[in-house]
């Protein structure tokens, strides 16, 4: 084949591809225009019917037939925009309507699908309507991390010790989104997660302990004091730092004494955590000890000590004023910074 013929052939192929591309672009735009108008009206009607049904408490709402005929992602979209704002009787009503519409049975069937995207949709529907189906439990061990993460989110509707224990095991999941979802769900579970958390902390491996302590810190439940006390003496500095932060969040006399002790820890992260904790508690009797840390060898600790003094109120401010005229330039600088922040009312 000559070069000329080859170029002509390639040009012809290009023209075909270009024509096809432009035709697809136009076809997509036309389809979108039509679909948007067609579906927009239906979605609006179903949305209004769903709201009406929830408001009237209708047992067999008229919307059911239209609702199930919507594409799956739009059903999820509609539930997703409504469900987070519902609780109590309205949430029950939503579940009842979903059941009458056949959506719950369909969601359970989807959860058993071979395809992960369908299992994900199934778990999503169960999460949105708060359907505590057993089949979703099996998805906590699904091979696909997206499905596992969705099942973790769903676990909020099954606050049983076994489920919570599974969530705690997932704090060391190999996928970050599952670890994040597990922590978030445990925090949202609140009270129901505390006892399993206490049981897990003494025997857990490092990754689980760190994840669980982050959860515990956000919960700040008084029952967590004994494990926090124990872990404050851990040889692992990261564990110690989190345990000290937890003790600060719990704030008992015994806990505060341990936090004060942590100001002398060899690890700067632990000292930093102790300063943040004392600042959060506004524990003014610790002011002299905190003021000493403004001269700490680690810069971050010095800055945090100044901010902590600011949080301790008048006694801290006295120390800051003394430090402001200190010969130590860094101490003087961080003290001025903390005092200025106090006047602006800004956080650190």
């Amino acid at each position: 084949m000559s070069a000329d013929a080859l170029v002509r052939m390639v040009l012809f192929s290009e023209a075909l591809l270009l024509g096809l591309g432009i035709a697809l672009l136009v076809a997509h735009a036309v389809w979108w225009w039509w679909y948007d108008r067609w579906i927009g009206g239906r979605v609006e009607a179903v949305r209004a019917a769903l709201r009406g049904a929830l408001a009237a408490g209708d047992a067999r709402p008229a919307f059911a037939r239209d609702f199930v005929r919507l594409p799956m992602r739009l059903q999820i979209y509609l539930l997703g925009e409504l469900a987070p704002h519902l609780s109590g009787a309205e949430r029950h009503a939503l579940r009842r309507h979903a059941k009458h519409a056949g959506l719950l049975a369909k969601a359970e069937a989807l959860c058993r699908s071979w395809f992960w995207s369908r299992r994900l949709f199934g778990a999503k529907i169960c999460t949105l309507v708060g359907h505590p189906a057993d089949v979703v439990l099996t998805l906590l061990a699904d091979a696909n991390p997206s499905v596992r993460a969705q099942a973790i989110e769903w676990a909020l509707h099954r606050p049983e010790p076994a489920v919570v224990a599974s969530l705690l095991r997932m704090l060391r999941d190999r996928d970050g989104r599952c670890r994040f979802a597990a922590q978030d769900t445990l925090v949202r579970l609140g009270h129901a997660a505390v006892a399993p958390l206490i049981a897990c902390l003494p025997t857990a491996d490092r990754a689980t302990t760190l994840g669980a302590l982050d959860v515990a810190l956000t919960m700040a439940d008084a029952r967590l004091l004994p494990p926090a006390r124990t872990l404050a003496g851990s040889p692992d500095a990261a564990v110690r730092a989190r345990a000290v932060a937890l003790l600060g969040a719990l704030g008992s006399a015994e806990g505060v004494a341990l936090v004060e002790q942590a100001l002398d820890d060899v690890d700067p992260h632990v000292r930093l955590a102790a300063l943040k904790a004392l600042g959060g508690l506004s524990h003014w009797p610790a002011a002299p000890k905190v003021a000493r840390l403004v001269l700490d060898p680690v810069w971050d600790v010095r800055r945090q000590a100044a901010l902590c003094l600011r949080a301790l109120g008048a006694p801290g401010t006295l120390f800051l004023r003394q430090l402001r005229v200190s010969d130590d330039l860094v101490a003087s600088s961080v003290a001025r910074y903390a005092l200025d922040l106090a006047t602006v009312g800004a956080r650190a």
């Binding site: 994900l120 991390p145 989104r177 994040f180 925090v187 956000t218």
Partner: peptide, 17 residues
């Protein structure tokens, strides 16, 4: 696109973690 379906943005937005 599949991955985006797997993590709910509202969880991150609403999370203290």
């Amino acid at each position: 696109r599949n991955e985006a379906v797997g993590i709910n943005d509202h969880i991150v937005v609403g999370s203290r973690l």
